[in-house]
């Protein structure tokens, strides 16, 4: 600023940095702790010796995870779900957003479609009717139960639609003069100009599919069909939960029994895909958040 900061200003600046650093460290702490546990040996982890660095460093837990075929089978189901579900959502989001971004003068029923989609976002049949629908369509225990009911992501459609609308009208007019039809315009103009927005919604849909666990839990009867998150919910979370009539001693034994280091390793391996795409996500997601921002 050119002006020398006064002493109190400098103290203020330092205090702000300290508070923010503490906030950042406490956010990171549980994740770092889990990382440290996963690389520690069992005795050290259950003895409560591990804080933020591994004690008696070992790769035993990771080796055990690598050899765990059930874990990798579920991992594979999740990958399949992300690829198939992501691809379906990708195509549907782009074509729907494009059609809905057209002005009313060109597409008179636009508002009707829009209201139907928004209605589905704010009111649904709820758990049981949806479950019975999937059941009556004979989709239980199939991949379709995970990728079709989630295929229409209204929020993503609106984000992309708003972006399409913000592109200059002149491009559209020029393309029409050159004889482009709606599909060609979408492919040759709107799609390439919207890559950052398309990347945003695609990443959101990938994260959504990777993280979902509840649909896998209710639609899959055969544990062999569980996606990774559902599988982990069963072996880490449900297994660790006490039931009503347990004495405190029994609860303590239960928690001792749970394989801390192995679970930590499984949690971290399952987090890897998110960590890999996180840098890309971070570059784009701000645009997604400001959806429905205040307009003049």
């Amino acid at each position: 600023m050119g002006i020398r900061l006064s002493a109190s200003e400098r103290v203020f600046g330092i205090v702000v940095i300290i508070i923010l650093s503490l906030l950042g460290l406490s956010t990171l702490f549980p994740l770092v702790h889990i990382l440290a546990v996963s690389f520690s040996d069992k005795a050290a982890a259950s003895g409560g010796l591990v804080t933020v660095y591994p004690v008696h460093f070992t790769l035993v837990s990771y080796k055990a995870v690598m050899a765990d075929s059930a874990f990798f089978h579920a991992f594979g189901v999740s990958v399949e779900r992300v690829l198939l579900g992501g691809a379906i959502q990708f195509v549907l989001t782009i074509v729907s957003a494009y059609a809905l971004s057209r002005p009313k003068s060109e597409f008179r029923s636009r508002d009707v479609y829009m209201w139907v989609l928004v209605f589905t976002m704010i009111f649904s049949g709820g758990l049981i009717p949806t479950y019975l629908t999937i059941k009556s369509l004979h989709m239980l225990d199939t991949m379709w139960s995970l990728v079709l009911p989630t295929a229409v992501a209204v929020f993503n459609i609106i984000v992309l639609m708003n972006f399409f609308k913000s592109l200059p009208k002149e491009l559209d007019e020029a393309a029409v003069i050159d004889g482009s039809g709606p599909w060609h315009k979408l492919w040759a103009i709107y799609f390439p100009l919207s890559l950052p927005s398309i990347a945003t919604v695609t990443l959101f849909s990938v994260v959504g599919h990777w993280n979902a666990f509840f649909d896998g839990l209710i639609y899959m009867n055969d544990p062999n069909h569980y996606p990774l998150q559902t599988y982990l919910n069963q072996i880490i979370v449900q297994a660790a939960q006490p039931t009503t009539n347990m004495t405190p001693d029994e609860i303590e034994r239960l928690s001792k029994l749970s394989d801390r280091t192995m679970n930590a390793a499984k949690i971290l391996v399952s987090m890897v895909p998110i960590l890999v795409i996180y840098p890309f996500l971070q570059r784009y997601f701000i645009t997604g958040i400001t959806l429905g921002s205040v307009k003049e």
Binding site: W210, N211, N233, N263, K266, S270, M271
Partner: peptide, 18 residues
């Protein structure tokens, strides 16, 4: 961006009796 299955596993670990 992390699912509640994984965060839940972490919370259970951090807050358990031991």
């Amino acid at each position: 961006f992390i699912s509640w299955v994984l965060l839940g596993g972490i919370v259970i670990n951090v807050l358990s009796l031991d």
